[in-house]
């Protein structure tokens, strides 16, 4: 008996979730495709604002998750736990610095400074820039590995294009032909391929969108 009522409640919740998702989706879609100032457009804007507010709250949930994941790794002494301790300590220090910034406690040379922003810029941005500089080596090595593992027409074409584009950037004299080829590669096939991919992604999102709008997406149902 209890199982039956549980299953019924479950079905009812699924039904309600499906109704809310379909109606919200349709109202937002109609609103986004309506003229500005219409009731439908205003309703859509309200729903999108709701998402923005929820997104702000979700950052807090993310922070709690970050602390829980790394605290768990530290407590269970999982491999790499010292890095988790580092993450937790840095998160705590930056949080405290931000609170002190807001309380305007700094004096002397530091008066009016935003130390948390300065820490962020000097550590985070520098590290990200260093990692970004490494990416080109990863990609060139990946192209080499691609050719080593399996030589196909497409892989050969890819590697050849990488070489032409990279050499085309070298500022040597008498390299006009390569520079022209590089420009053509970037302007014509690369641009066409990029548009093709984006059109494909657009069509893919359309078919998933239709599935959501007719209540067939599983993510909001049990």
């Amino acid at each position: 008996m209890a199982t039956n009522s549980g299953a019924q409640r479950h079905r009812l919740l699924n039904f309600l979730a499906t109704v809310i998702v379909i109606s919200s989706g349709l109202v937002t879609l109609i609103g986004l495709l309506s003229d500005d100032g219409s009731t439908a457009a205003d309703t859509a804007r309200f729903l999108i604002q709701l998402v923005t507010v929820i997104a702000a709250v979700a950052v807090l949930a993310g922070l709690v998750n970050l602390v829980a994941v790394h605290l768990g790794r530290f407590v269970r002494a999982e491999r790499g736990w010292p890095y988790s301790v580092l993450v937790l300590v840095v998160a705590l220090v930056v949080g405290v610095l931000r609170i002190l910034d807001r309380a305007e406690v700094w004096s002397g040379d530091l008066e009016g400074e935003q130390i948390s922003v300065r820490v962020f810029e000097s550590v985070q941005v520098s590290l990200e820039s260093a990692l970004a500089a490494l990416l080109v080596f990863f990609l060139v090595f990946a192209a080499y590995r691609l050719m080593r593992d399996r030589v196909t027409v497409w892989n050969a074409l890819f590697s050849l294009t990488v070489i032409v584009v990279l050499v085309g950037w070298v500022p040597f004299e008498d390299m006009d032909v390569l520079r022209d080829v590089r420009d053509w590669v970037v302007r014509v096939p690369a641009s066409a391929g990029m548009r093709g991919l984006l059109i494909g992604v657009g069509l893919g999102t359309l078919t998933v969108g239709v599935r959501v709008l007719i209540g067939q997406d599983r993510s909001f149902r049990d």
Partner: peptide
């Protein structure tokens, strides 16, 4: 399910996620 904040170029996320996956 682990969240890593996204920096200016998403690289801090990639570094964190890669290190977590490497240890797991």
């Amino acid at each position: 399910a682990a969240w890593y904040p996204q920096g200016a170029r998403s690289l801090s996320f990639a570094a964190g996620a890669a290190s977590l996956a490497a240890d797991a």
